[in-house]
């Protein structure tokens, strides 16, 4: 009886753990977006250096550096990850500024309805096909195959305040 009861306890414990894994194992992404700008800082010796600081406010013509950091806080890999970022109203995409860890980069010129590689972004004007210019991009997508549990990565782009 005594032995049985001990086994029974252990068995219950094991099954509870198994149940927990099969029911709750999932990827869980946490996301952080930073907007930064380069500010000129003059030290006490009068030397001016450029420092990248958080952009609480910015002037027209200034470049804003957006950094998106994702972390998989879950216990399973996230797959087929699509990070979508419409270029904000009042700002325009800076040519060649998008970057990302282990990702493919696509752009949209229709507000995020369709995304294509930059070279495939075309539109028609009076029957002629033209390739979109970077300032016409109004959304950026990074495609990340897999984010392993517990790992993180970053993507980003720059925009100029109109």
């Amino acid at each position: 009886m005594k032995v049985f009861s001990r086994f029974a306890t252990a068995g219950a414990l094991v099954s509870a753990m198994l149940f927990s894994i099969s029911a709750f194992a999932a990827p869980e992404l946490s996301l952080e977006v930073k907007a930064e700008r380069d500010a000129k800082v003059t030290d006490e010796n009068g030397k001016t250096t450029t420092k990248r600081i958080s952009a609480e406010s910015a002037s027209p013509g200034e470049t804003i550096f957006y950094t998106i950091t994702y972390t998989n806080t879950g216990d399973e890999a996230a797959t087929n990850v699509k990070v979508d970022n419409p270029v904000p109203d009042g700002a325009s995409y800076v040519d060649g500024s998008a970057w990302g860890d282990n990702s493919d980069l696509l752009f949209s010129i229709d507000g995020g309805k369709t995304y294509k590689k930059a070279s495939a972004l075309t539109y028609n004007v009076e029957g002629k096909t033209r390739t979109a210019a970077p300032e016409q991009y109004n959304a950026v997508r990074w495609v990340v195959k897999e984010i392993k549990a517990g790992s993180e990565g970053s993507v980003g782009f720059s925009a100029i305040v109109k």
């Binding site: 399973e76 797959t79 990850v81 699509k82 990070v83």
Partner: peptide
């Protein structure tokens, strides 16, 4: 000027998960 990022993703088995935004 607000910038919103949306991430769509699947789990390891290919099941779509709820998108996250920031």
């Amino acid at each position: 000027i607000s910038n919103t990022v949306t991430v769509n993703f699947d789990d390891a088995s290919g099941n779509a998960q709820t998108a996250v935004t920031s």
